Simulated assay, not measured.
Amino acid sequence: MTFEQLIVFLPAALLLAASPGANNLLAFVSATRAGWLRTAKGILGRLAAWAVLVVLVSLGLDMLLRTSEVAFVALKWVGVAYLIYLAWQFWSADVSQETEAPDVSTLMRREFFTLMGNPKAYLLLTAFLPQFVNDEAALMPQLFSLGALYLLVEGVAALVWVSAGTFVGARALTPLRRKIINRASAGLMGAAALLLARTDRTV
Rank of each mutant, 00 (worst) to 15 (best):
L83S: 02
L83G: 03
L83V: 06
Y85G: 04
L86D: 00
A87F: 02
A87H: 02
W88V: 13
Q89I: 13
Q89P: 02
Q89R: 14
W91Y: 12
S92W: 08
A93T: 10
Q97F: 10
E98P: 05
E100Y: 01
D103T: 01
V104W: 03
M108I: 07
R109W: 09
R109H: 13
R110M: 09
F112G: 07
F113E: 04
L123A: 09
L123V: 13
L123F: 12
L124K: 03
L125D: 02
L125N: 02
A127W: 03
F132C: 05
N134Y: 12
N134D: 15
N134H: 10
D135R: 15
A138F: 10
L139R: 15
P141N: 04
F144Y: 12
L146Q: 00
G147M: 07
A148L: 15
L151A: 09
L152N: 08
L152Q: 08
V153M: 06
V153W: 12
G155Y: 06
A157D: 11
A158K: 05
L159S: 07
L159W: 05
V160P: 04
V160N: 07
V160E: 05
W161E: 03
V162S: 01
A164Y: 05
G165P: 13
V168P: 07
V168K: 02
A170Q: 13
T174I: 06
P175G: 13
P175E: 04
R178W: 10
